[in-house]
Design a binder for these strands. Structure first.
Length: 629
RNA sequence: GGACGCGUAGCUCAGCUGGUAGAGCAUUCGACUCUUAAUCGACUGGUCGCAGGUUCGAUCCCUGCCGCGUCCA
C-alpha cells in the first residue's frame, strides 16, 4: 500500500456478517473503504443491516444469477423482449382486458429506479437494457416473506421478478409480481432520481452513474410556449450516445468488409512515431531497455501492408497525441484508417460521401442531424467542394469583401500583400455586416472580425516574417493556417477541401502539374475536421528527402515534426508501393456529428480527467505501477 | 498558455449590501392494497472546493492554489 486518499476509513473488523443457512458472506480480515461523507458512511452501514435482514428472510445477499425469460429491450432479439408483448399486431397497446385474457407470464430482472410503497402493496420501476417496466407487488399476491423483502428494497437495488403482464387504470403496462428475488444492493446513494447528475464533471468521472441516470439536456422553453410543447433535445442521453457509437463502428466494419477490405491490427507501441504531425507519449520497455512511443497514427504500418499485397486494409484503433484537451481533442482517440491500392484521392472523395451516407442511415435512419442548433444534411448532393485556395478566396470575400486572385498563392510577396490587405480590412471595418456568417450559426460579426484581424496580425507581427516566408515551405504553412483561420468555422455542412500545400503534407503525392501542391483532401462537418485523405507518396527517394526535411523542421523547433527517419518504411517503399490512396477518419468526431454531441467528452466513455483527490504518502514506498518518464 | 464563469447537504439548486445556512429529492421513522417526479406526518443531514488575507465578524470582499466549464490562442 503506497498511497491512500484522505477519506479512507476502516469499516469492518474480521467476522462473518451473515450466516443464514447457505447464505454466508464473509468479510475479509479488515478492509478499507472510501466514503465521501458521514451520510454515505451511515447509509452504507444501514444497507449492510438491510442485507443481513434480507439474508434472514432466506434470500441470498449476493446471488450468482437469475433465470430471466424476457429482457426489457424495445426490440426482440435472441432473448424475447417483454415490452412488445404489451402491443397488438398493429403496434397499438393491448387493453387491460386483452392482457388479462392472454395471461402472459415472464421473469425479468432490473435495477429499481423508482419505488413507491403503499401499505400492503407497492409499485416500483425496473430499468434494464435502457428500458423501463413498472412492477406491482401486492402482499396478497407474493406472500408475507416476499413482501417483507419488498419493504427492504432501496433505489438502485437489482431484483428479479416473475409475474403476469397487466395494464393499470392509468394505462401503464405493468408486471403483476408473483415472486420476488433479491439480486444485489446499492450500498451508496444515487443521484437525484428525477434530474440525474447535473454536474458535468461527475458525469465523466462516474460514467457508471451517468449511463443509467442521464436523460440528456433540453433547451429551455420560452415563456409563451404552447402547453405540451416539447423542448428541443440539446444533448442525447449518455446511454443512447454510446449505443450509437457502437452502431457507428458496426456500420463502418460492414461498409469495409463488404467492399473487400481486410481489417488489421498494427502496433500501438512504436519505436519510431510517424504518420502524423503530433507530439508523442513515451514509455519504456524494461526487459529490452528500450524507449517506446505510443502511436500517433497507424499510417506507415498500413502502407507497409499494401506493399505486402494486402491491397485493401483498414484499422480502427486508438491513437495517442500528447496535446491539449478541448471540445474536439482527447489525448487518446479512435481513428479509422483505410488504404486502397490503385486508387487516388478523387476515388476516396466519392467513397467518403458514400461512407458517411451509409453510416448515418445505419445509425440514425436519416441523413439529417442536428449539431449545435444547426441542421446538417449528410446527403452526397449536399456536400460542397473547394480547393484550399478557393476556400480562402471565397471566405475572405464573404467575411471581408476582399476580391483575391489566384496569384496570391504564387509567391511569398503576393501572399504577404494579401494578408496585409486582409488584416487592414478586418481592422478597419469591424462592424460591417456579414449575413452569410451569421446565418451559418457564427458568433457576432464584430467579434469575428477582431478574431481575423488578430489572427492575421499575428502572422504579420512575427519578427522576420518575410525572411521566414522566403522559403516555399513556410509559404505553404502560412496558406494552411490562413485557411483554418478564414474558412474552417464556416464548414458546417459537409465540405471537402482539396489540394493542400506540399509543406504541410510530408506523406502525400504531389500534383502532376503543380509541384508545390499535393493530392490531399480533408472533410469538415460541424465546423471541424473529420477526415483526412491523400494519394500516397510512393517514391522512396522523395519520401526519404521529405523525412529529412521533417528533421530540419524539428531542429528549427517544430515539436510536432517527425523526430526520426523511418528507414524501414523508406525501404518498404523501395520494394514498390502501388499507386494507393488512404484516409483517416476520426471516429469520435464522426460520432459527435451523428449524435449531436458538442464535445468529444460526450462520445468517449472515460475521457481523460485530472485526478481530483489529494494523494498523500503513507510510507516510503513508491506507488504501485509507477511508469518511467 | 490567456480571459471569463462555476464549485453551498448524498443529488438538484436557492442564499439581497459581510452578521456562523435553506428548499425539493434521497436517507431514517410512521400512515396508506392502482401508484407513477405518488401523497400525508415527523426527523436527520453542512469544514459553504482548499489555503491565506482584510474585518469585531467572511459562504459573501481580496490573493494564491485545485478541479470543471465556456471562449480565445
Amino acid at each position: 500500500m503506497g498511497v491512500v486518499e484522505r477519506n479512507w476509513r476502516r469499516v469492518g473488523e474480521g467476522h462473518s456478517l451473515y450466516s443464514e443457512g447457505r447464505n454466508i458472506v464473509r468479510e475479509t480480515s479488515y478492509r478499507l473503504s472510501q466514503f465521501e461523507s458521514e451520510f454515505e458512511e451511515n447509509l452504507f452501514a444501514a444497507r449492510r443491516e438491510k442485507l443481513a435482514a434480507i439474508a434472514a428472510l432466506g434470500q441470498q445477499a449476493y446471488p450468482n444469477s437469475f433465470a430471466f425469460t424476457h429482457t426489457l429491450s424495445k426490440t426482440a432479439e435472441e432473448i424475447p423482449a417483454l415490452l412488445p408483448l404489451g402491443l397488438d399486431a398493429e403496434g397499438a397497446p393491448k387493453t387491460a382486458e386483452a392482457l388479462e385474457a392472454e395471461h402472459i407470464t415472464a421473469a425479468v430482472a432490473g435495477r429499481i429506479v423508482a419505488i413507491r410503497l403503499q401499505g400492503k402493496a407497492g409499485f416500483a420501476t425496473l430499468l434494464q437494457n435502457g428500458a423501463r417496466l413498472q412492477i406491482y407487488v401486492r402482499k396478497d399476491d407474493v406472500g408475507e416473506p416476499a413482501f417483507e423483502l419488498y419493504k427492504l428494497l432501496d433505489l438502485g437495488d437489482h431484483v428479479g421478478v416473475t409475474g403476469t403482464l397487466m395494464r393499470t387504470r392509468t394505462g401503464e403496462l405493468t408486471l403483476k409480481v408473483q415472486t420476488l428475488t433479491f439480486l444485489a444492493k446499492a450500498m451508496l446513494p444515487l443521484p437525484d432520481k428525477y434530474s440525474g447528475l447535473g454536474d458535468i464533471e461527475l458525469r465523466y468521472r462516474r460514467r457508471y452513474l451517468d449511463l443509467f441516470t442521464d436523460t440528456g439536456d433540453f433547451a429551455e422553453l420560452a415563456g409563451d410556449a404552447a402547453e405540451g410543447t416539447k423542448p428541443e433535445l440539446l444533448r442525447a442521453p449518455a446511454r443512447e450516445v454510446f449505443v450509437k457509437r457502437a452502431a457507428v463502428l458496426r456500420s463502418l466494419r460492414n461498409f469495409f468488409d463488404t467492399r473487400g477490405y481486410l481489417e488489421v491490427e498494427t502496433p500501438m507501441l512504436h519505436t519510431i512515431a510517424g504518420g502524423a504531425a503530433a507530439r508523442t507519449f513515451t514509455t519504456h520497455h524494461n526487459a529490452e531497455d528500450m524507449k517506446l512511443t505510443l502511436r500517433i497514427a497507424p499510417e506507415l504500418h498500413l502502407k507497409r501492408l499494401v506493399v505486402g499485397g494486402l491491397d485493401r486494409v483498414y484499422e480502427i484503433n486508438r491513437n495517442f497525441r500528447n496535446e491539449g484537451i478541448d471540445r474536439t481533442h482527447n489525448p487518446e482517440f479512435t481513428m479509422l484508417e483505410f488504404y486502397q491500392a490503385y486508387a487516388n484521392y478523387h476515388d476516396l472523395m466519392d467513397l467518403t460521401q458514400e461512407l458517411v451516407k451509409q453510416v448515418a442511415m445505419d445509425v440514425n435512419g436519416t441523413l439529417l442531424t442536428r449539431f449545435n442548433g444547426v441542421e446538417i444534411d449528410l446527403a452526397p448532393h449536399n456536400w460542397r467542394k473547394y480547393s484550399m485556395r478557393e476556400a480562402i478566396t471565397n471566405f475572405v470575400k464573404i467575411e471581408l469583401g476582399i476580391d483575391a486572385h489566384e496569384n496570391i498563392f504564387d509567391s511569398v510577396q503576393n501572399f504577404l500583400a494579401f494578408l496585409h490587405i486582409a488584416a487592414e480590412t478586418a481592422k478597419a471595418s469591424p462592424n460591417a455586416n456579414s449575413e452569410s456568417w451569421k446565418s451559418s450559426g457564427g458568433r457576432t460579426d464584430a467579434r469575428r472580425k477582431r478574431q481575423i484581424h488578430s489572427g492575421i496580425a499575428g502572422f504579420e507581427s512575427i519578427p522576420g516574417i518575410h525572411a521566414q516566408l522566403a522559403t516555399s515551405r513556410n509559404l505553404g504553412k502560412a496558406i494552411a493556417e490562413t485557411f483554418e483561420l478564414l474558412a474552417e468555422p464556416h464548414l458546417i455542412q459537409p465540405t471537402i477541401i482539396y489540394d493542400f500545400p506540399l509543406a504541410v503534407s510530408p506523406l502525400s503525392k504531389v500534383k502532376a502539374d503543380e509541384p508545390e501542391w499535393v493530392e490531399r483532401f480533408e472533410f469538415y462537418i460541424g465546423g471541424f475536421e473529420v477526415g483526412n485523405a491523400f494519394s500516397e507518396l510512393n517514391d522512396p527517394l522523395d519520401q526519404r528527402n521529405r523525412f529529412l526535411e521533417q528533421l530540419k523542421e524539428r531542429e528549427r523547433g517544430d515539436a510536432e515534426a517527425m523526430a526520426e527517419v523511418d528507414e524501414d518504411y523508406v525501404r518498404a517503399l523501395g520494394y514498390g508501393l502501388p499507386p494507393t490512396a488512404g484516409e483517416g477518419i476520426g471516429i469520435d468526431r464522426l460520432t459527435m456529428v451523428l449524435t449531436g454531441s458538442r464535445t468529444i467528452r460526450d462520445v468517449i466513455l472515460f475521457p481523460l480527467m485530472r485526478p481530483v483527490k489529494a494523494v498523500v504518502e503513507v510510507d516510503g514506498e513508491q506507488p504501485h505501477g509507477e511508469s518511467a518518464e
